[in-house]
Amino acid sequence: MLTPAGRRPWTFYVLAGLFTLFVIFLYGPMISIFILSFQGPTGGLVFPLRDPGFTWFHALFGQARTGDVGGAFSRSLPLALVVMVLTVLISVSAGFAFRRRFRGASAIFFTAITSLIVPGLVLSIGILVTFREVFGLPVRWYSSGLAAHLTWTLPFGLLIMFAVLGRLNPSWEEAAHDLGASRWQTVSQVLVPIVFPGMIAVALFGFTLSYDEFPRSWLTVGSKNTLPIEIWTMTTNVTSPALYALGTVTTAVSFVVIAIALGSIWVIQRRRSRRG
């Protein structure tokens, strides 16, 4: 950076090496379980890979299945979708509220931060007790589980909205108003287009954080497991590559979601820069 143009300082190569090693460290183990999930029927939990195939993927959903994997998927996916929608609605709305002064703003903000940093297991116990003792309701993935996931996704959503709305200049709204736009027109034609990429980011966090959440789910989903809890029980019971196959399937779902989110942000930005 600070040497004459064209020549890179030696620190560049050292740090580039560190960065490469870090990326290998980050992805290497994950790639190795993706490869090992295609282990043949005689293959074990470690390399070498013996006659690769889809044995363990069939085992996962087939007759001699290792647990209720299909059921876990059928709960985790809708739950993540509902959490995603609620997270976007609640945090976008709250984000706009925080642009003005109102009573209790800092109390609410610090509660949100507490919700973010409180150990998940502690909150899991608390929500279990709340549902059983206060509401008199049984714990279920779609009630107490949903509540527990919201306590995890909302703080992230709120922080993202702060970052997005912090850059939003209030004079744009005033300009729209001065030019004769109604409140609704200002919201739909000025504010929403500007915050839209931020909303996609909030949706991405909402979906993936719920879909992968384990500590907060542990005591709050009830007798029907969500996916991370199914995986947790498998880590202790299952000693076949079926565990890796499940890892590959869940990660593939996550990757599809990430790709959709990042891809749509990219498309929006491109369209915008072309127009502007």
């Binding site: 609640i90 709250a94 919201l150």
Partner: peptide, 28 residues
């Protein structure tokens, strides 16, 4: 009153599922 309406859903979730549960953990 608009900011209060906008922040109400968040406040409700935090009150019911963070503040109350943590209070109950202390009680238990």
């Amino acid at each position: 009153i608009l900011p209060y309406l906008q922040v109400a859903p968040l406040t409700l979730v935090l009150a019911l599922f963070v503040v109350l549960p943590l209070g109950l953990v202390v009680a238990v």
